[in-house]
Design a protein around this nucleic acid. Structure first.
Lengths: 226, 226
DNA sequence: CAATATTAATCAATCGATTGATTCAGTCAA
DNA sequence: TTGACTGAATCAATCGATTGATTAATATTG
């Protein structure tokens, strides 16, 4: 039998952060205790103070850890076209479809793939709704690229609208998707379907169709109803 | 000088519930203490156990109180048309517009009108995202009419779609609006506009336009772009 | 009506449990 | 030896819950 993996020094810190993400996501900041988190990380609760200066520091570090891991995924999308460039509309249309797909897959990472990733997005969702005083800066930095990306695409797709209208549309697109992620448990209860959504691809297609129609980009749907 | 109003016995119970709604909405179930709630209600903390059997009972009663007060408002809308009846499409179209308006005004009751009402909807929003074990039954009963109403309208407006598609569309419509309500504070930070939305009517118009287009009901928008 | 008994409502005080934080002696590897 | 870490003990503070006493309103009785 193999011996337990050598416990590298830096490793404890990382285990604490991952255990914190899981526990904070399940029980919220007030509901989660540092004893429970430490036990989950197979570490001593005194290390929370030692490494992070306290519970609040651990929370901040956990959110920062999530933000760092996810930032690269948004940036990896092809950049939105310049408003005046040739073929900008078609590029922006494809960009919007790619964005919606990326947004959904980012948010809907299921526990089967990575338990921590799933908990991380649940935690972000909870924080967006009711930010802990400590988390506001981290959260703004995290959400900004998602927001800016859609706004840039909208400036190409709907140049006739003013910035306020662009903001409303951005929030409508993201809102539908965030609602699916944040209220998934409740939706399953309400609809009576415990394994909703059965197919993520169908869901992505729905968000894409609904949003592009909602945006009023008719060339994406030459004919809605015969 | 007039003496302080006589403190009717039943009144304390009601004051406790209202204080509970405010405090639970601000700090969550774990974050709010019965001492703070009692102090806010100018009552003794022992009365929480006396009247409601404990903190959990007070929470349950607070949610029930919200559910009871809001139930009548949904029911006051004109009933959705029968799928086969004459002029059903036009009636359903107007019904959908009325529903969206009612849903928005229900959710967006601002603190200026009634501090408790505003807190109540914030509390509901929080519970939908992460239901307390105690609240699931109350919450389902509360949300069911909202859900059923949209589904009934969709069966008329989009009879070509299956129930799963109807469910997705319902969640997209409600999701946008719930996201506005639940993340209002965050949106204000992110957009840099501290008094967003300036005009509720503009917002209602946006939700209506975006949703009806998204649903694919072309007669509502004979021409999206010239 | 008056005297008494009963119940509901409220209070201050306190309970044990748990919280986050801290301390400290000891382990282990570099 | 030094720095990273452990494990156990302990701290003050706060938590929800409970107690026993007190007041006010109501019912019962003579």
């Amino acid at each position: 039998m193999t011996p337990p993996p050598p416990d590298l020094p830096q490793d404890t810190r990382h285990r604490l952060i991952e255990a914190a993400i899981l526990t904070f996501a399940e029980k919220g900041y007030d509901g989660a205790g540092i004893r429970e988190i430490a036990q989950r990380a197979q570490a001593n609760s005194a290390l929370v103070t030692y490494h992070f200066g306290g519970k609040e520091g651990l929370y901040r570090e956990a959110l920062h850890h999530i933000s760092d891991r996810k930032a690269s995924e948004v940036a990896s999308l092809p950049p939105p076209p310049e408003p005046g460039s040739p073929g900008a509309r078609e590029v922006a249309l494809q960009g919007m479809k790619a964005y919606i797909r990326a947004f959904v897959t980012d948010l809907m990472s299921c526990p089967a793939e990575s338990e921590v990733d799933a908990a991380a997005m649940a935690l972000i969702g909870r924080e967006i709704q009711m930010p802990h005083p400590v988390s506001a800066p981290v959260l703004l930095e995290f959400a900004r690229p998602y927001m800016e990306r859609v706004l840039a695409l909208l400036r190409v797709l709907r140049p006739d609208l003013d910035p306020d209208a662009h903001l409303r549309m951005t929030l409508s697109i993201q809102g539908q998707i965030l609602h699916f992620r944040n209220s998934l448990g409740f939706i399953r209860l309400l609809s009576g379907d415990p394994d909703f959504p059965k197919d993520l691809e169908v869901l992505i297609q729905h968000f894409t169709d609904f949003s592009l129609r909602g945006l009023g980009v008719p060339e994406a749907f030459p004919q809605t109803r015969p």
